[in-house]
Design a protein around this nucleic acid. Sequence first.
DNA 1: ATCGGTCCTGGAAACGGTTTCTCGCCTGTG
DNA 2: CACAGGCGAGAAACCGTTTCCAGGACCGAT
Lengths: 336, 336
Amino acid sequence: MATLRDVAKTVGLSAATVSRALSGHPYVDERTRGRVVRAARELGYRPNALARALRVQTTRTIGLIIPDIHNDFYAESATVLQGAFEEHGYRLILCISNSDPAHDRSYLRTLAEHRVDGIVHVPSSSIDAHELDAGGRRIPVVELLRHSPDAQFDAVLSDDFDGAAALTRHLLALGHRRIAMLTGPGAFSTTRYRVDGYRAALREAGLGPNDELVLYGSYTPECGHDATRAVLARTPRPTAIFSSGSRLTNGVLRALAEACVRVPDELSLVAYEDPEWYAISVPPLTCYTLPLREMGRVAADTIIARVAEGATPRPPVVLRFAGRLIVRESTAPPRA
Amino acid sequence: MATLRDVAKTVGLSAATVSRALSGHPYVDERTRGRVVRAARELGYRPNALARALRVQTTRTIGLIIPDIHNDFYAESATVLQGAFEEHGYRLILCISNSDPAHDRSYLRTLAEHRVDGIVHVPSSSIDAHELDAGGRRIPVVELLRHSPDAQFDAVLSDDFDGAAALTRHLLALGHRRIAMLTGPGAFSTTRYRVDGYRAALREAGLGPNDELVLYGSYTPECGHDATRAVLARTPRPTAIFSSGSRLTNGVLRALAEACVRVPDELSLVAYEDPEWYAISVPPLTCYTLPLREMGRVAADTIIARVAEGATPRPPVVLRFAGRLIVRESTAPPRA
DNA sequence: ATCGGTCCTGGAAACGGTTTCTCGCCTGTG
DNA sequence: CACAGGCGAGAAACCGTTTCCAGGACCGAT
């Protein structure tokens, strides 16, 4: 077995003393401690984290729910968060929701049942706050990147409105007027803000809202591919495409290559996010990059602070991080 | 609080009955069950997974340790595994080791302390089998993609030898003779097998082992970039590059673009793995793709079977999956 | 000699579920 | 009427820790 009691038995001490000896408690004789640690090692004793957590009512574990592990966007966040938690002695449980509200809720429930101390959530659904009640107290939640506005959670967001507006303005300044926007589900706050930013930029330029050029879908390469084909078939054909996610961009490029449309000569392309391969794409892509590392760190600090302060009610804080436009070679003035 | 006993108190029953009512036990009056579930819902009762696990001595949780979440290779494995576990009612705890042996071991220990029922491991170090003793029994482990040969674990591997040989033969058949190989740490089994495959293909072609053309590093874009610059500086310059990992490939392409080396006119490029962007790269990359989905599923089935059969000792099985050469447009006969 | 601290150690009660054992009740049967 | 057996429910033990409460030993001060 090798439980605490087994160790206690072999050294002829009580479980209490063994526990104290191993957890560095003062008031335990150094020779006794030596005997205990030696016996523990020999028996291959490994503490049971479950039992400990049950007793001390804290797991030092934080749950992270992200929609998609293939998206650099979220992969990067996960990496940063994990590093930050490690520094503070927290473990990370990573869940992948595939942007499915049912999965989303199910993971939330699971994490609550496992009594994680806190949750960092990239929501794919709006959630009932009381789903998070567990063992009497409310589990602290920090929302990352996406926002469920009615629920009163802390949030660390990017300024999607500004980002989309910046990309659109860049195209407008080059002279583009028919700009197709490819984006994800309208249910996500990110999608809505980006579309709003796009519209606002058009309005600034005195253009009416051409909502027939906004194509909603899911953030997958297939969707980007199909939407691009649809865009290319339009008459008059748009002179620029705004891809609202890196996996969409993948499909966009494939469709453009299939149709032998040259970028930026025949069509300009701007994209949200900046995964590794944007810079080495041919041509390198003009994009809007987010300070993901910083955002991840802030999210980690926020949730850790919330956990530490306990149930003290404090109004939620919402932070928005500005990104940066990177002009590369996928944009040029329209030809015609 | 909302514990089981609280529910019991409000409906005037014993904790035992409430437990039975909620877990679908027979021999509990249907009207009683109704009252219990109603009360549980009203009180917001949420079972404590820790307490349950402590009692029933199983967590229905499986740990997965991967080196790098940014690598499509592992991201895909994680996705497949998660899906498979979900079907069988297992949860997944995902740990990212960054290919650091210290992290690797630390996660192994953490997972053991949390009494996961099994572990799927992409090893970054050779591990002591007895590190996995926990609560008396040995936690089952399945190794994925990489192999620690001395430890007696089940393993689901790709045939790295064959893959590297296939890519090298493809280049040789086109007439290449000076083929540089860019690869990761020599400590990984994957790296060693791939280098062996490369050497074997050269030997078949009657070429001596030109080990000065094998550049070891780490599987990062920076490393690919720097190694490529080093390769380009060699005289005579190699006519082809073999990139042994997708993040390496990223750096290779960037370095080639900076040096204005055209692919495949001036230099051919083959790459291991096949992430989404290989096909839309310019030119699309010739590569060796692995049946990741299938491998993930087999790994999941294997670990679940091991968990189910308990401590029954059974000799470890090692499976190797063959991949497939995909010839795209990054390879051509050498010019000179 | 008594008292009041430190310094060690042990007993026992949690933590929140599950499971075994037991027991009473009811019904049907010989 | 005695009895077997199925059903429903409760008491108590258990999982492996931590921690509160006590108590004994030892020391110096009163």
